[in-house]
Simulated scan of single mutants.
Amino acid sequence: MARKPEGKLKRGWTTGACATAATKAAYTALLTNQFPDPVTITLPKGEQPAFALSREEKDDCSAMAAIIKDAGDDPDVTHRATIISRVRHGVPGSGIVFHAGEGVGMVTKPGLPIPAGEPAINPVPRKMMIEVITEIAQKHNLPGDVEIEISIPDGQELAQKTWNPRLGILGGLSILGTTGVVIPFSCSSWIHSIHRGIDVAIATNRPHVAGCTGSTSEKAVMDLYGLEDTDMLDMGDFAGGMLKYLRDHPVPKLTIGGGFGKLTKLAMGHMDLHSGRSQVDMSWLADRLREIGAPEDIIQEAQTANTANQILVRCLGEGIPLAEKIAQLAQTEALKILRGSSEKNSTRNQTEVEIIIIDRPGTIVAKTGFAT
């Protein structure tokens, strides 16, 4: 994850907002032969940003407008990508039809907000584009039967840096956004992808999913159980975002895999495992060593150790079950979130959870087994 820069950060615009602006410009030109540039749209919360066109083109049958996406200071893989909308008159009575052009993916699995077989253009961007088409058509006394093709050159390559392939979105990127605005480092898109991964797992009746803190732990868990790529939720640091969604959308089995330091944070009750938002309390770790009867010299070393991994390595070498203790405590904290605070949640959610701790070379050093 990229490090958040200091100071006030610049907001950006979603692919959905850019596609809507390009669609408005293209449809206006199709009817009037004039491209509005810049083109202004109204976002769901009432903001009215203006977008400059990077390309425009018109022939007898269609009009095309392109906008270069500005994600502001967010480390978005689609920053500076070109979002293209080509608009054509549709068959009378057809309404507004969406097509995936170059670099825009197609949905191939159930569980997402767009059904399988449709372009990966999410509901809010679709609604925004429908609204601009309808508004312009009404001004010209037209029914608004229109075909909209959205393209993103290099989108297929960029999509490999996203979770689209795991979600069953193939061939390119998704057109996303619920507000039209990108809030830098809000991590909302990451958490959104975790939620959609859970939705797909439920819709495809997957019995076992896993959320891991990084690639090393992910590989260890996949190898252990023979899980498929689509069974892996991209949890990263967002244990809370995953567990809270699973509380209301349970799956049969969940494995949480990760390094010792990250899962020590979970054992302490932290739900955001990022180093900038939670730290391992070494005094807390020393107290856990005391509970399992560790020698006093190790307890004292833990008080001043630079990292939790330093203590893990020593405990592994001396046969002290610290990793097992942390795994058990992390499992307890995860189950607290899944059960929630109400009796309704505690009886409804039957997700079985296990914790697996992996050391830096990729070896499993602790495993709780599943529990509810």
Rank of each mutant, 00 (worst) to 15 (best):
A294C: 02
N349F: 10
I84G: 06
T307V: 02
K4V: 07
I183G: 04
V251D: 07
D37Q: 05
S193F: 03
D37S: 12
S174C: 12
A201K: 05
T347M: 15
L273E: 01
N205K: 07
R166N: 10
R86H: 02
R314P: 00
G168Q: 02
A330Q: 10
V87P: 03
I130T: 15
T307A: 08
V132C: 11
D234H: 13
T216G: 05
R126S: 08
Y225Q: 00
V209A: 05
L173S: 10
T347W: 03
C315M: 13
I84C: 07
E301C: 11
L227H: 00
D37P: 07
T332W: 00
A308W: 07
G171K: 08
F98C: 08
C61P: 01
I256F: 01
V91H: 14
K69N: 01
L335W: 03
A323N: 03
L31I: 08
G144Q: 06
E118L: 06
L243Y: 05
G95W: 06
D229N: 04
G111I: 00
W284K: 08
R55V: 03
E301S: 15
D154K: 13
E135T: 15
M222R: 13
M235F: 00
P295R: 08
G241T: 03
E118G: 03
L9E: 09
G362C: 00
I41K: 10
I292N: 13
E157G: 00
M129Y: 10
T351V: 02
G211Y: 07
L176R: 14
A100I: 02
I130V: 13
G319M: 05
I191L: 11
G144L: 01
V39L: 08
D154C: 01
P75Q: 11
D145I: 00
V104M: 10
Q156K: 14
I357Q: 10
V353D: 12
V221E: 07
V313G: 04
G197E: 12
D359C: 01
L246Q: 13
G171Q: 00
Q138H: 15
Q160G: 13
I311L: 14
C315F: 07
T15C: 05
Q300N: 10
V200G: 08
K127G: 09
L112P: 07
G269L: 03
A294N: 02
Q160C: 04
E354I: 02
A52H: 14
A21V: 02
E228S: 14
R166E: 04
K253C: 03
V104W: 02
E352Y: 05
H249P: 04
V313H: 15
K161M: 01
A120K: 04
V104E: 14
I298M: 09
A66M: 01
